[in-house]
Amino acid sequence: MAEKKIRVLVAKPGLDGHDRGAKVVARSFRDAGFEVIYTGLRQTPEQIVAAAVQEDVDVVAMSLLSGAHGTLMPKVVNLLKEQGAGDKLVIGGGVIPDDDIPALLEAGIAAVYTPGTPTSEPIEFIKANVK
């Protein structure tokens, strides 16, 4: 049996045209040996979940700089559960105020990363938490 490869969906939910961060993260995940599926900009939670299901990813990583994280990220978690894919690790990153993080963690986002985080942090987290 071949080695299991970790598959990660890197997604940009909502109306937010800034994807430099998402691309940096995608590249660093690639260099960590992950298969990264990049969906491009302006995805609805429904599109992200449909892609996550079809691609059978282990991780859904969302990048959000628009301030809508409180709505969009939990929605992705809930839709994944509804579609029988609730076992995926969901993480998020972007310009997210510290005060908002507890609610996101509560809603099922496994980890939240803010500007300045070294890319090694989410990589280690994914390696440690994907079964």
Partner: peptide, 26 residues
């Protein structure tokens, strides 16, 4: 070198994601 990959073909097909008659796998 690393075994990693960036699979970017879906970027051009994102409005097909919700069509139940389509299944895309990268």
């Amino acid at each position: 070198f690393t075994g990693g990959a960036i699979l970017g073909d879906r970027i051009r097909m994102s409005d097909l994601a919700l069509d139940k008659g389509v299944f895309i796998r990268s």
